[in-house]
């Protein structure tokens, strides 16, 4: 039976400053099944990264604040845990890898020590066993000369190697959920292919669920089982990956798919979405996508549509799909 590993319900994360409150994540609900890869796709500022930081409760040093909702992970609400209890979840049951691995590695400690630290803390292994586990993990993620790398510092590694180390570190405690926030964005194409390949292998050989946050539809298409599309803090569409690319419902999703140039497809012009993402102070009252939408109707300007199922396992936040259903 497929069971839900993580369920996020009505999550509201706001950024509070002197002038205004920005609803960075606005009423977001989704779930991840066991051994499933869920992609969250969207452009900068859509709230995809804030969503992942909210799950990890890593908003402490930002103006961000979770003001509502529930994050249920293995039958407990993460938002009710104390900071100490949360630390036991982080890195152990939920691990995270970031876009820029250099910022998440401590530059003054050796690679080995950094990996071992988490292992000893969460798996309660002794020093020698932790070291053996670290070595095993480095070999698993395909790092050559793994033994030497244990004694090297982060700056001595290339970007791709650092990301491998991050993945080794994240996977070392066999987490139930791996959150990958733009894991390949900072990498070159040929290195990205290596890392994606590695993540596919890990997925095949373990039952870790992955929450993949990216702006790259290509990565989504290759890696994910289900996809959530976010725009201006809200989920606008949710579907399985095949369904989303075959039968996109929301005009934003359609626009995104059509606006990327595709290899070997010599069109003169690309379809594009006019205008820009609205800034928080200019957030439209109705549908947030309305000012850029080619199918906009009067209703869209005044009333905000809800996220509603259009088919089984496919939901969309658009007045158009409701109109069609009624017809």
């Amino acid at each position: 039976m497929v069971s839900k590993l993580l369920e996020v319900t009505d999550l509201e994360t706001h950024f509070i400053s002197d002038d205004a409150t920005v609803k960075a994540v606005d009423n977001v609900s989704f779930y991840i099944n066991n051994a499933e890869t869920l992609g969250i796709v969207g452009e900068s500022g859509c709230g995809k990264s804030v969503t992942s930081l909210s799950i990890m409760r890593l908003l402490k040093n930002t103006p961000g604040k979770i003001v509502g909702g529930e994050i249920t992970f293995l039958d407990q609400n993460l938002l009710n845990l104390s900071e100490k209890e949360m630390r036991a979840v982080r890195g152990n049951q939920i691990a995270m890898i970031f876009q820029e691995p250099m910022t998440s590695l401590n530059p003054v400690y050796k690679i080995g020590r950094q990996i071992e630290e988490g292992i000893r803390l969460h798996l309660k292994l002794d020093k020698a066993a932790a070291k053996a586990r670290a070595l095993e993990m480095l070999e698993l993620v395909g790092i050559p000369r793994a033994k030497d790398i244990l004694n090297e510092y982060p700056y001595q590694l290339s970007g791709g190697m650092r990301q491998r180390v991050m993945i080794a570190m994240a996977m070392s405690c066999v987490p139930k959920l791996l959150i990958a926030d733009e894991p390949t964005t900072a990498l070159d194409v040929t290195i990205q292919a290596q890392i994606l390949d590695l993540m596919r292998d890990l997925r095949k050989n373990s039952d870790t669920s992955i929450l993949m946050i990216t702006h790259d539809l290509g990565v989504v298409a290759e890696m994910c089982d289900r996809v959530i599309v976010m725009y201006a803090g809200q989920i606008v569409e949710e579907a399985s990956v095949l369904e989303l690319f075959e039968n996109p419902q929301h005009p934003y999703t359609k626009g995104l798919i059509n606006s990327i140039p595709k290899l070997g497809n010599y069109t003169e012009r690309l379809d594009s979405i006019p205008g820009n993402v609205p800034t928080p102070e200019n957030m439209p009252t109705g549908c947030r996508f309305a000012p850029r939408c080619s199918f906009v109707m009067k209703q869209c300007l005044s009333e905000a549509p809800m996220l509603k199922g259009v088919q089984e396992n496919h939901s969309c936040r658009c007045w158009l799909s409701e109109v069609e259903k009624n017809d």
């Binding site: 379809d271 200019n282 080619s294 199918f295 906009v296």
Partner: peptide, 23 residues
């Protein structure tokens, strides 16, 4: 993609109303 009539009307109003001049 087809433009609706409403869009055409709105295009004239939108730029100003949706990006207030902050200056």
């Amino acid at each position: 993609m087809q433009k609706t009539k409403e869009l055409e009307i709105m295009e004239e109003v939108l730029p100003q109303s949706y990006e207030k001049t902050v200056g």
